[in-house]
Design a protein around this nucleic acid. Structure first.
Lengths: 146, 146
DNA sequence: TAAAAATACTCCATAGGTATTTTAT
DNA sequence: ATAAAATACCTATGGAGTATTTTTA
C-alpha cells in the first residue's frame, strides 16, 4: 500500500489525462474501478471535482485546488524517497574514529549502541589513542573523526 | 476512502503517540492491524521507520523525515477542505448582473451555461439595460455586476 | 520479566473486472 | 449517434479482530 490513497492517485491521473478512459490505459486499471474511486472521493469531499462532458472530464474549481496540492504532495514524496535512499547509502559506509582513553567508559558505548540500532549497516572502527597524538593521525587520513 | 493511505495515517498516529498500543486506543483500530501497516510501509520504503524498544517505538531518521512531510500534508489537506467548503458556500449565493442588449446573444449565454454546470446552486439574475444607465443602477446597489 | 511488537489464522470489507445502461452534446 | 461515464453483478484482494508467540532493555 503506497503513501497516498487510490482515490488521490487515480484522481491525479484522470485530471492529467482528461478522461477516465485514458487514465485507465495509463494505470492499467479498469475504467469502472477508477470511476468509482472518483465518485467516492467527490462524496467524501462533498463537492464535484469534475464536470462531465461527452468528451471526458473537466476539472471544477475544487478539482483544480485538489490537483495542485496533489501534485505538490507527489513531488514531496519523490524528494523524500530520494533522501531516504541517500540515508540507506550512508548506512553502508564505514568510519574510523579516534577517542581518548578517558571516553572508553560512559556515553560513547551508549551512542554506538544506538547507532547500531538506527544504522545497522554502518561499521565503526574505534581507535583509542592519547589525546596529544590525535591531531597528527587525523591529518594523515588514518582516521575520519576524533 | 480518505485522501491519504491507511499506512500514512496510522504511521502519524504511532509516531505521535510513541507506541502502537496507544495509537490503537486513539484510532480505535486493533494494534495488530496498525502493526501490519507499519511493517508493510517499511518494506515499501525499504527502510526502518522506527526502532523497537520495550517501551514502544522511536522514530529513526527516515521516520522523522516522513513524519514532518506527513504532518505538512495533513495540514495542507485541512486548509484545502476549508477552501472547498468556502466554495460550497459561494455556490449558494445569488447575483444580479446588468448587460447591454448587444450581449444577449453570443458568449454570455455560453458563460452562464458553464456556470450552471460548475456552480449549480448559484442564482444569476440578468437585467438588460441601455449602457448609459448602467453606472447609476450599479451605484444604487440594485445590481452586483455590469 | 514485563511491556509492547510481531505472527497466525479467520472473517469481513473494499477494490477490481466484465457486461450493460445511462448521459450529454 | 457516439464516445464516455455510471451502474450492476460477481470475484479477488487486502484489512481488521482475537489469540498467541516473540522481542528487548
Amino acid at each position: 500500500m503506497p503513501v497516498f490513497s487510490r482515490f488521490l492517485r487515480y484522481f491525479i491521473a484522470v485530471a492529467q489525462q482528461g478522461s477516465i478512459r485514458k487514465a485507465s490505459d495509463e494505470l492499467n486499471i479498469a475504467a469502472s474501478a477508477i470511476d468509482r474511486q472518483i465518485l467516492q472521493g467527490e462524496k467524501l469531499l462533498g463537492t464535484q471535482l469534475f464536470e462531465r462532458l461527452p468528451t471526458g472530464l473537466r476539472l471544477t474549481t475544487a478539482g483544480e485546488l485538489l490537483l495542485s496540492s496533489g501534485i505538490r504532495w507527489t513531488r514531496d514524496l519523490r524528494a523524500l524517497t530520494t533522501q531516504i535512499d541517500n540515508l540507506k547509502g550512508l548506512r553502508q559506509g564505514s568510519a574510523d574514529i579516534l577517542i581518548p582513553d578517558a571516553l572508553t567508559k560512559g556515553f560513547l558505548p551508549a551512542v554506538l549502541g544506538r547507532l547500531r540500532k538506527t544504522h545497522p549497516g554502518i561499521v565503526v572502527n574505534v581507535h583509542v589513542r592519547a589525546s596529544k597524538d590525535m591531531g597528527e593521525i587525523l591529518v594523515d587520513g588514518q582516521a575520519d573523526f576524533a
